[in-house]
Design a protein around this nucleic acid. Structure first.
Length: 567
RNA sequence: GGAUCCGUGGCUUAGCCUGGAUAGAGCGGCGGCCUUCUAAGUCGCAGGUCGGGGGUUCAAAUCCCCUCGGAUCCGCCA
């Protein structure tokens, strides 16, 4: 809460409590008519043995507001002591700060700490789907939010490029691919063989064994198998890279499971030596986590790894590579248990980075008919949904007839991505949701395009007016309710950004950004800037519009959404 | 059987961590607003007491307990 300490200090004139004790009681009133910050007196009531109403009244009388304070008035309303800000001072401070800091408004100084985010970690046997897009949107947005808070952010991807599922695609290609080269986007080409395998498996259950056999050959580094694997994996990676680029993300490092799958055994052996782990009756090395987590196998009796073996290794490897203070795993909620186990073992082994590990879990996306299943081909494919959205936006643009053909393609892409990304980020990440292809991603209402539109309106004013915005204005003129609420929202941006980072929640910022756009639209509908005859008033409003535009652009950046000039 | 997540108007959802003053918003429905900075906008109306029950509290959508419904996980799969 901004200006919290000012209010706390005022209260300390009359109360002998610590700054911390007082500021914990402060609250933001539900309605501006109750002021900007309020102090509920209920808790004091017990201590002082007076009614809260009386305490509020007494405090109102006792506190003297110094000259130049951001607080203009203190009023007791019922059991609440309400503090009202001096709007001209608030306006001047807020707008000056935005003016000076521009695209760094809301940013904090470099804190010399590294936070590593891992996402979306796809399997290389099939193309990306809507669930990956949610993961990517969440990972990228969280990355940008952390960057704003002064962290050095490292984005890494982990390719799950080995295992039985990969061999299934490979086997299908071997049998029915006729050594064809991809005739479509390469990851889709690979994915088709995965679906084909599942279809054929229903007719011929023996294919399962053949796939297992292929996996053994791969593990034995059979030359022909490895060559096929390399070829198909590269197709998949090329396809992914294209989609990542389209989505506006890139990675500082890509780890590959094929490099990791045999590693981590020494970590397990060390734990065994230190008696953290033990062997079970058949010779597996296991850990007993007790309580709700139970017993987990860490290394098979034959000495081969399981998934968690390599995950332990990777956690350590990532720390060696980047010395992170936080490591965020952006992974769906179906792996909640797995990550809990992983983190528990890391703590058990006393790794210094164990406490910095965090699972940014997100809910799943369902189709109206149920869960998406890659092997049955019943998925909302990432590239298709993007393409369809762009087409949808183009149709919309054409029907409006406001944009020249030449400008349309870029705008259409940016608007479509805005719709998609904001749709994926506006819900709390823990929620599952059902995706209705026809209606889910809308262009109106609480959407990405709505935000972009408010930006376009503000930007258009700045472009059209025949003067440059200036900070040299009479701030007191911005005194209409719509102007004041907009200014207060602009003032809140750094707080909201901080909140979003502390709770790993882009949706908090999404909620705020929608409010901000809505507040600007209200102002826009009611007052004019270009047509305003009072020169001083025009200057003040132009500055407000400029500040709004810049903050809106900052917000959109946090979602990975581009601004557009026309729409 | 155990664990985790979710349950707020017709639909989608914010608020829950950190309990306070009339429970916000979008879609959909009905009715208005474009000679003025782009109507992907905006205004108004109808619609919820927060799955159910109990408890704590001056105060509960928010905390605790019980219960019902939905999802996910608890493989030597990743």
């Amino acid at each position: 809460m901004q200006y919290e300490s000012t209010v706390t200090q005022l209260l300390q004139q009359a109360l002998s409590f610590s700054e911390k004790e007082i500021s914990e009681l402060l609250d933001i009133p539900p309605n501006p008519k109750f002021g900007d910050i309020s102090f509920p007196c209920f808790k004091l009531s017990k201590i002082l043995n007076k009614t809260p109403q009386l305490i509020a009244k007494e405090l109102e009388k006792a506190i003297k507001i110094p000259e130049d304070s951001i607080v203009r008035e203190i009023k007791a309303i019922g059991a609440f002591l309400n503090f009202f800000f001096n709007i001209p001072i608030l306006t001047e401070r807020t707008l000056s700060q935005i003016w000076n800091e521009r695209d760094k408004y809301g940013y904090k100084e470099d804190n010399k700490k590294t936070v590593l985010l891992e996402f979306p970690s796809p399997n290389t046997n099939k193309q990306l789907h809507l669930g990956h897009l949610r993961n990517m949107a969440l990972g990228e947005s969280t990355s940008r939010i952390f960057e704003s808070q002064g962290f050095n952010v490292v984005r890494v991807n982990l390719l799950n490029d080995r295992g039985i599922h990969i061999c299934k695609s490979m086997l299908a290609y071997k049998k029915w691919g006729n050594k064809r080269k991809p005739d479509k986007k390469e990851d889709h080409f690979v994915g088709d063989f995965y679906v084909l395998f599942s279809k054929q498996l229903k007719e011929n259950p023996k294919l399962e064994e053949e796939a297992q056999e292929l996996l053994k050959q791969w593990e034995a580094k059979d030359i022909e198998t490895i060559a096929l694997w390399e070829k198909m994996t590269n197709w998949a990676i090329n396809g992914f890279t294209e989609t990542f680029t389209k989505f506006g993300i890139s990675f500082d490092k890509t780890y590959r499971e094929s490099d990791l799958w045999e590693k981590g055994k020494d970590i397990i052996m060390e734990g065994l030596k230190n008696n953290l782990f033990h062997k079970d009756e058949v010779g597996n090395i296991v850990v007993d986590l007790g309580g709700q987590l139970g017993t987990k196998v860490l290394l098979r009796a034959d000495g081969t790894s399981v998934y968690i073996t390599q995950d332990l290794y990777l956690a350590k490897k990532k720390y060696e590579d980047f010395k992170y203070s936080k490591s965020i795993y952006v992974i769906g909620s179906e792996q909640n248990y797995h990550l809990q186990v992983l983190f528990e073992i890391l703590k058990m082994m006393n790794f210094e980075f164990a406490d910095g590990c965090y699972h940014l879990s997100h809910g799943m996306i369902f189709l109206p008919e149920g869960k998406m299943k890659s092997r049955e081909g019943t998925v909302i494919d990432a590239d298709t949904i993007i393409k369809e959205l762009i087409e949808m936006v183009k149709t919309e643009i054409i029907s409006r007839g406001k944009i020249a053909e030449s400008e349309m393609n870029k705008s259409a892409k940016d608007i479509a991505m805005a719709a998609l990304k904001f749709f994926l980020l506006k819900f709390a990440s823990s929620k599952d949701f059902v995706f209705y292809p026809e209606e889910s991603v809308s262009l109106y209402g609480k959407t990405g395009p709505y935000l972009q539109y408010s930006y376009v309106r503000a930007n258009r004013i700045i472009q059209k007016i025949k003067k440059k915005p200036s900070l040299d204005v009479n701030f007191g003129l911005l005194n209409k309710p719509e102007e004041i609420s907009l200014i207060k929202l602009l003032k809140d941006y750094p707080d909201v950004l901080e909140q979003a980072s502390l709770s790993y929640s882009p949706h908090i910022l999404a909620e705020y950004t929608h409010q901000l756009a809505s507040s600007f639209n209200l102002f826009y509908e009611k007052y004019r800037v270009i047509g305003e005859s009072d020169e001083e008033m025009q200057n003040a409003r132009l500055l407000l519009v400029r500040c709004f535009r810049d903050v809106m652009r900052n917000c959109l950046y946090m979602f990975g959404i581009n601004t557009v000039n026309t729409m």
